[in-house]
């Protein structure tokens, strides 16, 4: 009797181990295969071709060789399109992700305390995320207008020189150094000069635009924290700084980790912000202007996909590059996070 029950239970358990996860995962995996995973395989295949509207010629790894060639310099000494876009993407990710998460963490903490008009305040911080990028972008373009924008009026008011903002391809570091009277050393590597003023403006827009997303994610994590834990800590005389860093941070670390991973991925893929803010320059000035100083990798992919002949294969190779970069970055994040993220 008893052994029969054990056998049946063991059988049931094995069934569960086999079939239950399969059942729970099936819809997701089927859909992901059809709409996401299969396309990336197709992309990998296309990247081996010269491909316009149809496959034109099988060229093996030539597209990848072209990527490497275009990392290097152009005739004038500037980096090639791919090299430039990798640098711009690097600046962009490093400039937006940490800033967004830190600011969002502070705001979410403030919004999680007992304040009046909580609903209204939370909504205020979330509204930019809902507002269409185009509408918000137009408002920003005007704020940053070199001739009549509000920002230049403010600069003037503070006695600072007016700037070209979104139209300025000059890198920011030499500019800031120049402002305090230090010259930029000749022959210093280009990437040390930092992002262009135009790119910094786009990054600021991006932080503003995605802040609401990050705040809501963190809030959802904060709300789940047992208030008694905090109360107990407060009784022990923990100050706000300690509360944030020693209590809250570890407790929401799974959320923060998720946010880090997701924000990094999104930041690497950012296209809309760049497109809306920097392609308004009239005929011939596509996204990425001025002087390709806002040319992120997705913008370069876009350029090759639609504005270059028979470049679909090359665009696919660039997509693979972006995909692999993201895969590596995410794996590194997981590896580093495993020791720091606390579940439970």
């Amino acid at each position: 009797m008893a052994s029969e029950i054990t056998v049946r239970r063991r059988k049931r358990r094995r069934m569960e181990r086999l079939w239950l996860p399969a059942l729970y995962l099936a819809p997701t995996l089927v859909l992901l295969w059809a709409f996401d995973i299969y396309p990336i395989f197709l992309s990998a295949w296309m990247s081996l071709w010269r491909w316009g509207i149809q496959p034109e010629e099988f060229i093996g790894l030539d597209n990848y060789i072209r990527i490497f060639e275009q990392i290097g310099s152009r005739p004038g000494g500037a980096p090639g399109e791919v090299g430039q876009s990798l640098m711009v993407t690097g600046f962009y990710v490093l400039g937006t992700v940490p800033a967004t998460i830190v600011i969002a963490f502070v705001i979410a903490n403030l919004l999680n305390s007992k304040v009046r008009f909580l609903g209204a305040l939370r909504t205020a911080y979330f509204v930019p995320y809902i507002t269409s990028t185009v509408a918000a972008g137009l408002a920003f373009v005007w704020l940053l207008n070199p001739q009549v924008g509000v920002l230049n009026s403010l600069m003037e008011w503070f006695g600072l020189p007016a700037q070209q903002w979104l139209l300025d391809p000059e890198p920011i570091v030499p500019k800031l150094m120049g402002a305090v009277g230090i010259g930029w050393p000749d022959g210093a590597p280009g990437f040390l000069a930092g992002p262009s003023v135009a790119l910094v403006c786009v990054m600021a827009f991006s932080v503003w635009n995605t802040l609401g997303f990050a705040v809501v994610i963190i809030l959802a994590g904060l709300i789940t924290i047992d208030p008694q834990v905090k109360e107990a800590a407060r009784m022990d005389g923990v100050n706000s700084w300690q509360m944030a860093t020693r209590i809250t941070m570890p407790l929401v670390s799974p959320t923060l980790f998720l946010l880090l991973v997701v924000s990094t991925i999104r930041s690497f893929q950012s296209f809309n912000e760049v497109y809306v803010l920097t392609s308004g320059g009239g005929y011939g000035a596509g996204a990425g202007s001025p002087l390709d100083s806002t040319l992120t990798l997705p913008v370069l992919i876009f350029r090759h996909l639609y504005e270059r002949p028979s470049s679909v294969g090359f665009a696919a190779a660039l997509s693979m590059l972006l995909f692999l970069l993201l895969l590596i970055v995410t794996l590194v994040q997981f590896r580093f996070a495993e020791r720091r993220v606390h579940y439970d």
Binding site: R17, L20, P21, L29, F35, I37, Q269, L326, L331
Partner: peptide, 25 residues
């Protein structure tokens, strides 16, 4: 919540789908 082989691997695959550029799809 479930223990099965390739759990982590499959999850990574799912996560990787976020990294596929939209243009490729």
């Amino acid at each position: 919540r479930m223990k099965f082989r390739f759990n982590n691997l499959l999850f990574m695959v799912v996560l990787a789908t976020m990294m596929i550029p939209f243009e490729a799809r």
